[in-house]
Each structure stands twice: as C-alpha cells, then as structure tokens.
Design a protein around this nucleic acid. Structure first.
Length: 244
DNA sequence: AAGCATCACAACCGCTCACCG
DNA sequence: ACGGTGAGCGGTTGTGATGCT
C-alpha cells in the first residue's frame, strides 16, 4: 500500500499504528465531528475523509469484527430487499457493524449469491423483486402523528422481530395495528397512491416520527441510548419512488 | 515450490445534500 | 437565490491473504 502514496502533500494508503493512536487520542479529547480540523489537531497528514472513514470503520469503539452471524445475514438480506444499496441505513440495524462492512460483505458474498439466484430465477420468469418504497404522504398540521410528541409505537422492533416479520409483535393504538389505522381517515392525512403492499412493508412503517420530519434519511432508527424522538424519517425516499 | 486466480476488506474517490453567509 | 464549505454516502479500486493447479 505504500506505493499507493502518490500525493506528497497528503498521506494516503494504509494507516499505521501511530496514526491510529493519534487519531484515537484526538477524538477522545475533542470528540467526533469537525473532521477538517481533526487532521490538524491530531498532527496527521491525512485528509478529512480518510480520518473520518478510519474512525468510523475501524477505530470507533464497539465495532464488531469477524464473521457475520446467521441472523445478521438474514437481516441484511431482508433490509437490502427493502432498502436497496442503502448501506448506512442497513448498518444502523446491525449493532457494531459499519456500512462499509455490510457493503463489503454484500459485494463479496451475498451479492454474488443473489445474482446467481437472479440468473436462475430469470429462466423461470419469476416475479420481479420490487424494492418497496413508501409513497408520498400529505400530513396536515393537526395530525396526531405530527402534533404528538409521544412515539407512535411503544417500542421499536428488535432485530429479532425484523428477521421474522410475520411474527412481529406490534403495539396497538385503540386496539388496531397502528399501521392499519395510520393511513385511514382524512383527519389524519391523506394517502397518496397506494402500491401493492408486501409483507415486509410493515418494516417501513415501524418508524418513530420526528416532529420535524426533516431528516434526509428514509429511516434513522434510534440507537442504543438515543431517545425515541431522535428517530426520524423523511419523504425523500417517498418522492424518489415517484421520480422513477 | 511456484505461479496464478480468487477472495476479503481497507481505503480512496466522486457525488450529493445540508447549512450558512 | 446563490455560491462556498463541510459532512456523509455509495461505488470502485488496490493489495495482502488464501486456495488451487
């Protein structure tokens, strides 16, 4: 990797132990973020992207290394079917795994498997696998879902729940599955064109609503220790499906 | 043992978006 | 409204490790 180093002004290629230590120490002192300053503060001759990536993919505490377990692989497959190549979103549902890990795992193993299956299935003219994308919704200001600070669900489904969607234990609102009532009634909001819904779509509806509805990501699942209100989703992905 | 092919993964790069003045 | 900057994401590449002939 040393030969990789072409640009004399900024170091590239594999990180050394010393560099790792410098970066770790710097972030312990100053915290994450401000990546453009990290390099200078740590005394590293690396670009901000390199620093950020090294920290997020390798040095950050609690990063899980080693082979993916069966349930993790199952979850990746399910989420990929729903989200496509949105590795960061998928990785958020896999504690200790990074987007890069998931992406690499998919590209080196799962991707090949699924391509093989796709080729096999094509000859049998199987049904097209649609990436399920939620549809645009119109919220009115008085909507319960927007005005309430309380989360809609009593809890977020665990990874185990996600791996067995048909058995998910959903909390209810007024005795009904919340997603069934979510789209009912104009006093709440109007539902735009409703596509055929596959079973896994319930995963998409297992969201906490940020009162601002401003996050760019489709679904930012709250992490451990994060409050439910910090979870957010936006209409970006919704709109995206319309453009296609 | 040597050479080649393939795999796994760390790292780079380009692009997009949010934010701010 | 617009341009500059920072941050994040996904695609791609480079390289060491491993397996195979």
């Amino acid at each position: 990797m040393e030969g990789y180093n072409v640009n004399l002004s900024v170091r590239k290629g594999a990180w050394t132990r010393e560099e790792d230590n410098l970066l770790r120490q710097c972030i312990e002192i100053h915290g994450e973020g401000k990546w453009n300053q990290v390099s200078y503060k740590a005394g590293l001759n690396r670009c901000r992207k390199s620093c950020r990536q090294r920290w997020l993919n390798y040095l950050k505490p609690n990063i899980k290394r080693g082979d993916f377990k069966e349930d993790e692989v199952d979850l990746i497959l399910r989420l990929h079917r729903l989200l496509g190549n949105r590795w960061s979103l998928i990785a958020r549902r896999l504690p200790g795994r990074t987007a890069n890990d998931v992406k690499n795992y998919w590209n080196t193993r799962l991707g090949i498997d699924s391509r093989m299956k796709t080729l096999k299935n094509k000859s049998q003219e199987t049904r097209k696998t649609n990436v399920i994308r939620p549809q645009p919704q119109k919220f009115i200001k008085s909507s319960y879902y927007l005005s309430s600070k309380e989360p809609i669900l009593e809890h977020i489904q665990s990874a185990e729940d996600l791996s067995t969607p048909s058995q998910t234990s959903s909390s209810t609102k007024n005795g009904n599955d919340w997603w069934e009532t979510l789209f009912e009634g104009e006093d709440t909001f109007e539902r735009a064109a409703c596509p055929s819904i596959e079973l896994e779509e319930e995963l998409f509806t297992t969201f906490w609503f940020d009162d601002r509805l401003s996050a760019r990501s489709c679904a930012n699942f709250p992490e451990e220790g994060q409050s439910r209100s910090e979870f957010s989703f936006s209409m970006d992905l919704w709109n995206h499906s319309k453009e296609e």
